[in-house]
Write a protein that binds this DNA or RNA. Structure first.
Length: 271
DNA sequence: CCGGACGCCTGTCGGC
DNA sequence: TGCCGACAGGCGTCCG
C-alpha cells in the first residue's frame, strides 16, 4: 500500500502524539508478520521514551535511549493513534500503549509489514543497510541515475522501483513520474540520456512532494493516523486509469504488466 | 552479476 | 447466490 509519501504522511501525523511520550507497554496479538515480532521489541521498548521518529525509504524508525523500533507497513499496514481503551479490531496486531492514555496501533491484514527492534544503529540493520539514496535527498540526482544505469537492460520502471537504486518509490509514483517526464516505462534504463534523467528526477521530486502535501494517495484503504484518507488520488494522471483518456493528448491510457506489476502509460506522450 | 519470477497473506471485485 | 480467478501502495529470495 504505502509508498514514501504515505509513510511520510503517517510519520508527520503520529509525531506530535508520540514525541517525548513513554511507552508503558507493547502488546503483541499476532507476531507472525513478514518477520516475526521478537520478544526483544516488547522488552526493549517497555519504559522507553520516544525521542524521535524518522523515515528511511518506507521504514519508520522510533528512536529511544536503548535502541530503535523499525516499522514497515508492507502492502496493507496502517498506524493509528487511538485512546488506549479502543477495542481492537481484526488484524490489529501490535499496540504501543503510551503514558498519555493514547495507543499507537499497528494493523495489517496481509501481514507483509513488520515491527522490528534493534539495539544497533538502525541504518546498519540488514534491511536498511543496502538501500539506495532518498529520492528527496541531495545524493539523488540525474548524474547518479545516469551513471548507475549504464549497461542496464532492465526497464526504467523496474529500475525506479528497485530500492537499492533509489528508495521509497513504489508502483503509483513510478508510473506517475514516468508519465510526467514523457518516458516509456519499458525503455531500458541504460538507454536513457542524461537530459531525460534530468527531467525524470525533477518529475520524481515533484510528484513525491506534491503527494506528501496532499496527505498521500488513498486508492482503497490508506489512511493517516486519524483514519482519514489522502487526496492525491485526484492528481493521478495514469495510475489506475486504463482505457481513460490522457489529459495531455487525449489518447487512451494503456495497462500492461512490467515485472508482475500493473503499469499505466500513454503510448503517445511516453516514448 | 543481472533480470525475472515466485511467494508471503487477506480481502475485494467481476464474471459466470 | 455462490464459486473462482485475478488482482492489490512491497520486497526478500531463488533460479537460470
Amino acid at each position: 500500500m504505502p509508498e514514501l509519501p504515505e509513510v511520510e504522511t503517517v510519520r508527520q501525523g503520529i509525531m506530535p502524539h508520540l514525541l517525548k511520550r513513554k511507552v508503558k507497554k507493547v502488546l503483541v496479538r499476532e507476531h507472525r508478520l513478514r518477520w516475526p515480532v521478537e520478544r526483544s521489541l516488547v522488552q526493549g521498548m517497555r519504559g522507553q521514551v520516544i525521542k524521535d521518529i524518522t523515515r528511511r525509504a518506507k521504514y519508520l524508525i522510533f528512536k529511544t535511549d536503548k535502541g530503535h523500533a523499525i516499522i514497515h507497513l508492507g502492502m496493507s499496514g496502517s498506524l493509528r493513534v487511538l485512546p488506549s481503551m479502543a477495542v481492537p479490531q481484526k488484524h490489529d496486531h501490535v499496540d504501543f500503549l503510551l503514558d498519555n492514555q493514547l495507543c499507537l496501533r499497528f494493523r495489517d491484514p496481509r501481514r507483509f509489514g513488520c515491527v522490528l527492534w534493534t539495539g544497533d544503529s538502525p541504518l546498519n540493520h540488514p534491511l536498511l543497510r543496502e538501500l539506495g539514496p532518498e529520492p528527496l535527498g541531495e545524493a539523488f540526482n540525474a548524474n547518479y541515475l545516469f551513471s548507475v544505469s549504464r549497461g542496464k537492460k532492465v526497464s526504467i520502471k523496474s529500475f525506479l522501483m528497485n530500492a537499492r537504486i533509489v528508495s521509497g518509490i513504489g508502483n503509483i509514483y513510478a508510473n506517475e513520474a514516468l508519465f510526467l517526464s514523457g518516458i516509456h516505462p519499458n525503455r531500458a534504463a541504460g538507454r536513457i540520456s542524461l537530459k531525460r534523467y534530468i527531467k525524470l528526477v525533477t518529475a520524481i521530486r515533484h510528484v513525491l512532494q506534491e503527494a506528501i502535501r496532499q496527505g498521500g494517495t488513498t486508492l482503497r484503504d490508506f489512511t493517516n493516523e486519524q483514519g482519514e484518507p489522502g487526496y492525491f488520488l485526484q492528481e493521478l494522471r495514469v495510475y489506475d486509469r486504463q482505457d481513460q483518456s490522457c489529459e495531455s493528448c487525449g489518447g487512451v491510457i494503456k495497462r500492461v504488466m512490467i515485472g508482475q506489476r500493473a503499469t499505466y502509460y500513454c503510448g503517445h506522450c511516453q516514448r
